[in-house]
Amino acid sequence: MAFYAPPIARLLEELERLPGIGPKSAQRLAYHILRGDTEAAARLADAIVEVKRAIRFCERCFNFAESELCEMCADPTRDATTMCVVEEPRDVVAVERTGEFRGTYHVLQGAISPIDGIGPEQLRVRELIDRLGRESVSEVILATDPDIEGETTALYIARLVKPLGIRVTRIASGLPVGGDLEYADEVTLGRALEARREM
């Protein structure tokens, strides 16, 4: 039995393909769109099409970009001697939000995971090494995820970069600032203890 008119069913089907959207969320979104005016729906559809048309990868760091270079790469005031290596474009946003980093980025577009058939060739590793040969980078900060794939990727890159005479550092993992020690989960707390420093 068809519960929905075909156009609604089609919208639901598309929405359910999105990550984190189950049947109930899809229904809520679809009904919201149906209740709204036609202009609002057109703006949404337009924004989706436009983002696919206008956004490509930065030719230097492989972050999302609107032109050849992303905003960070195009900014001449940024410190080109420190480079932060991350897995995904969203990690660039996370590091930028800290306001602590004024260097450049390199987005690998994933992490090494043999189970999923992802090796260095599927990532932007060669492009990273090429950049290091071209640009005068003195420190590479490895900010891949603190899970085992991210850790392995960091180890792999560190072994490629160190022989080039470039300083390689890895971001620390541990407790979030502003979090109470008492509420930290045991694994995070254990990691933070392991990475303790002298005072």
Binding site: I112, P114, G119, P120, T153, L155, Y156, R159, L160
Partner: peptide
């Protein structure tokens, strides 16, 4: 996959 030493070493380390 027949990974070479360079690719295997980080996993070995972990």
């Amino acid at each position: 996959d027949g990974a070479d030493r360079q690719l295997l070493d980080p996993w070995t380390e972990q």
